[in-house]
Amino acid sequence: MATTETHSPNPAGTQVVVASSRFKTLISNQQFILLIVWILMVIGFSLINHIFFSVGVAENILLDWAPLVLIAVGELIVIISGGIDLSVGAIVGFTGVISAFAMRSLYEGSLAEQPYLVLAIGVLVCVIVGLLVGLINSLLINYAKLVPFIATLVTLGACSGMALVFTKGAPVMGGPREAIALSPAWIGPFSRPVLIVVVVVLILWAFVHKARFGRYTFAIGSNSFAARAAGINVKRHVTKVYMLSGLMAGLAGFFFYLRLGSGAPTSGLGNELDAIAAVVIGGAALTGGVGRVSGTVLGALILTTVTSGLIISGVDPQWKRVVVAALIAIAATLQALRKTEGGAS
């Protein structure tokens, strides 16, 4: 029983309790390890090809990181609550094409002169559709009594299927051309949409680690019976958690739209696995009750750095899967180590 507060889900995180050794302190500080891993990666890729150490590459990495971190933080919250959301990748594609249809009809119609208003409506459509799918997930879990894995597998199939049907498999273009114009870097390597994502993640961090919303989420994932006995409305909170996850996926769907200037039904397919990988690498436990937003943010950063690094190094990007698998194995091992070292009897 000797870990520190750092990785414990205690959002207070104020008092650092005795650490019996320096080693234990270090392995228990997932964020610190991740930061070191990431810095080593950047150094390594830069040594292979010095172009890697450039604003241009940072810009590319951030463009990949932003949508991934959105769905990964949503996924993190679901996982902290003891659930899993497999539908996020499908929601990305689904919201992307639905809002692309909406924007195209507006832009070709009554709002042709107001591209930014059309884009704002596009965001709104993504948000609403994402929230709705999240709501359906929670209804399936709370009332149809499906386990989260199955419930979200159902919506995964429904969303990706509908996206293909509605689009006939082809991308949906014809919205405001200003979309792509928003993608280039604005401050340093940060584009405007990426900066917005940073703000969204900061807000989520506060709600997860500093507010009642997060406290209830951890409590439910830690011991849902105790949470209910303490008077927490568990069903209502679970509903909020899945709706938030859907919302994040919807925002990611819009981010892809901005990047591509079109919505594609295949966008986001399989991204739930990247999100779960980022969450696990970030030190969260799939059993619930454990996780940090900062860990997930770094986990997502590491994944996207690997992608760009392999491309710039001229290595087949398919190697990414192998690298990610190794990272997951290491993260899970650390998790298990901490349990034996730090678990109370």
């Binding site: 590319n60 463009l63 990047r259 591509l260 079109s262 594609a264 295949t266 966008s267 986001g268 491309i311």
Partner: peptide, 11 residues
């Protein structure tokens, strides 16, 4: 996936 194609080309 178009976003993956986009990432490849960007890099």
């Amino acid at each position: 996936k178009p976003e993956v194609a986009n990432t490849n080309i960007n890099n």
